[in-house]
């Protein structure tokens, strides 16, 4: 069936591609026209400095001193100061930013010179925070989800009840509200750092969804697998670990990947408890750059890069796991 469809598309494929191109061109033109109407001046050149910028650092004399030696070493210059109390200090500054001369008398706080170096800007810092925030909460969510998923199918009524309660509570309330409760209530009671609160709220949120994915995955494995493992003398935990979970993992990889991608995006909500993640960095950058459109597009692109990297990793894992098909 599917083979036929693919074979018959020789001609229509060209038209489809043309149509796709036309739609994309129209969409771009529409956006361009729209921004032209609101009279917006694009200033993309303002964006890169929020990724990386060259910062100058001033080196200052600690107290009154005399410049004892100046030794140029190419691009940088070593300056030795004799302090009035008899001690010495050496500075290395950029040659073209040297502010003192041999034998000059300095007061405490006078600038000897500058060095410049590259610094990561707020967007990269925010991206990094988003990255490990979602990474940590993903790990937490996976652990919680695995335990809860196993509890959901356990024979023990109490465990089953607790697990369902957790899943229902989390899935039935908005993440934003959960973050507030976690930060303002639990965070205050237990005196949690805002980062801990953020990771906790996100991890617990993801855990509820992952639990359902894992439960469905385990239940999709034919009963005969457990019976075969048990008939060989394996205990239930051994059978789970060696037989059921590896197969369930393979089947749940696509929905799990979707959940992790959601998690990366949902992590933007923690900016409401003043965690400077990518979204919050974006807002801060806008207040100084006034390049609203550009910054939001950039932030979106950064999220897209992280999520598509994750998709690639998952795709690669799926391919590796499919050798046994």
């Amino acid at each position: 069936m599917r083979k036929d469809i693919i074979l018959n598309t020789g001609n229509t494929q060209i038209y489809s591609k043309l149509l796709l191109a036309a739609i994309l061109i129209l969409a771009t033109a529409g956006m361009w026209g729209a921004t032209a109407r609101v009279d917006y001046t694009w200033r993309w050149e303002r964006v890169p400095q929020y990724f990386l910028y060259k910062g100058e650092e001033a080196h200052k004399a600690a107290q009154d001193a005399k410049v004892a030696r100046i030794q140029p070493q190419g691009k940088s210059t070593a300056v030795t100061l004799d302090y009035d109390d008899g001690t010495q200090e050496q500075f290395v500054v950029d040659t073209d930013a040297l502010k003192v001369t041999q034998g000059e008398t300095l007061f405490g706080g006078d600038t000897v010179g500058f060095t410049s170096s590259w610094h990561v800007g707020p967007l990269i810092k925010g991206l990094w925070v988003t990255f490990w925030l979602s990474g940590l909460s993903g790990i937490l969510g996976l652990a919680l989800g695995l335990v809860t998923g196993l509890c959901r199918i356990s024979k023990n009524y109490t465990l089953r009840g607790l697990a369902s309660l957790y899943v229902e509570l989390i899935r039935g309330t908005p993440l934003l509200v959960q973050i507030f409760i976690f930060y303002f209530f639990i965070g205050t009671v237990l005196n949690l750092d805002r980062m801990v609160a953020g990771v906790g709220a996100l991890g617990i949120f993801a855990g509820a969804y992952i639990a359902e994915i894992i439960r469905a995955g385990i239940q999709s494995i034919p009963r005969g697998q457990m019976e075969a493992a048990r008939s060989l003398g394996m205990t239930v935990p051994q059978a789970m670990r060696h037989i059921i979970l590896p197969q369930a993992f393979k089947r749940t990889l696509p929905p799990l990947a979707g959940q992790f991608i959601s998690l990366i995006k949902d992590s933007s909500l923690v900016s409401v408890i003043a965690i400077t993640d990518l979204t919050k960095s974006g807002r801060e950058v806008i207040t100084s750059s006034f390049a609203t459109f550009e910054v939001w597009f950039t932030v979106a692109a950064l999220y897209l890069i992280v999520t598509s990297l994750l998709s690639q990793v998952v795709f690669w894992m799926e391919r590796r796991l499919s050798v046994s098909d």
Binding site: G224, A228, L232, G233, M234, H242, I243
Partner: peptide
Amino acid sequence: VGMVFQQFNLFPHKTVLENITLAQQVVR
């Protein structure tokens, strides 16, 4: 007590050799 099933119930994610060695290692 060894058991052989109608539907074979081999472990699909393990090679033939691993199917046979797994329980020996884990159980025995």
